[in-house]
Design a binder for these strands. Sequence first.
DNA 1: TATGGGTTAGTGAATACTAACAAACACTGA
DNA 2: TCAGTGTTTGTTAGTATTCACTAACCCATA
Lengths: 193, 193
Amino acid sequence: MSEYTARQNQIIQESIQLIAQKGIQGLTIKNISRAIGISEPAIYRHFENKNDIILGIISVLKDTTGENFQSGSADRNTIELLKTMIHRHTERFIANPSLTAIVFAEEIFTNDSLLREPIRNLMSMNQNKLIAVIERGQSAGDIRTDLTAKQLSLVVIGSFRFLVSKWHLMDYNFDLKTEVDALLASLEKLLVE
Amino acid sequence: MSEYTARQNQIIQESIQLIAQKGIQGLTIKNISRAIGISEPAIYRHFENKNDIILGIISVLKDTTGENFQSGSADRNTIELLKTMIHRHTERFIANPSLTAIVFAEEIFTNDSLLREPIRNLMSMNQNKLIAVIERGQSAGDIRTDLTAKQLSLVVIGSFRFLVSKWHLMDYNFDLKTEVDALLASLEKLLVE
DNA sequence: TATGGGTTAGTGAATACTAACAAACACTGA
DNA sequence: TCAGTGTTTGTTAGTATTCACTAACCCATA
């Protein structure tokens, strides 16, 4: 878990919103300071440089997504477990739509080699967790076994990411919860033998 | 079809590569001119401003993806048709990996409201074409009908996009063709009743 | 009296873009 | 045949603006 002061968290949150609104090019020290209402140099009292702010963003993403994978009671039906996991993600996105611009657009950070590694880790970590869940579901007989868990995870993550990306691109102008529910119903039919 | 001079096409191609390598922040007039080997002001002999270059990139994307959707002989099995379409996409990505950084990362351009609209059009146009193909397949009995074509298109596009995005994030260090073939085999099992 | 968190004023570098000029070339009219 | 002319595509040298970041100072509070 990352430990940040209130001001640091505020800077990170505003940064996330800036990226969501204006893209990575909108993430400037001036924009951040203006959003918070302090001067530019004041930002440097809380972060050494801009790169550290981006690392802060990534670490928040890590915490955020990590929590939703605390797989909970593992004895429930796997499909229900998957639904709960994705629902938790969805709720978080609805509560903080700016997150969607970043969580599913890791490409934003890949220009800096310093940032490629943590992003790659985050991405494969999440997929591996999902693969583990699916594999357990296959053992338990909840999920079809004629496809590998890796392949199924690709389908689940991919379709969910695509839906959320569209939500962002469309300026959040459709009801994400409804669409996610529809997607989950579809995925259930696809995943259960 | 867009009509560009040789030099203009060269500028667009180098721009695509720059974005793939360094992200949107790496797309500067200086970088473009250096990549081509001419001076910065020479760029402005071929494009009025930077925005026009980005519009050029988008128009190339439109042509590129459009070609792969020329659905070909519509009388074949729909699954085979889908496979052909995705294969054509894949081949194009393998031939020009830089494209992947852009085609499936429309968020790159969304900072400028001028660019949001063409990107949105491109995206929904492609999905609508796929939906039409799937619907035809459902009528022909090639594809399961207990899920809507829209839902199935979400799964197909989403999983493919996710796979290609990972390929870019992983520095193209796995064999895309192999993975796409595996994905297509999986999708076939999922789509056929 | 030291520290944490703010300020104003400024740095050099990078940004998109412009002004003014020059060389290569095609096309004219005598 | 060939000077003259315009167009195309390049150049060098510059612009104003924005970028991340620093120096120096201030002031409330522990």
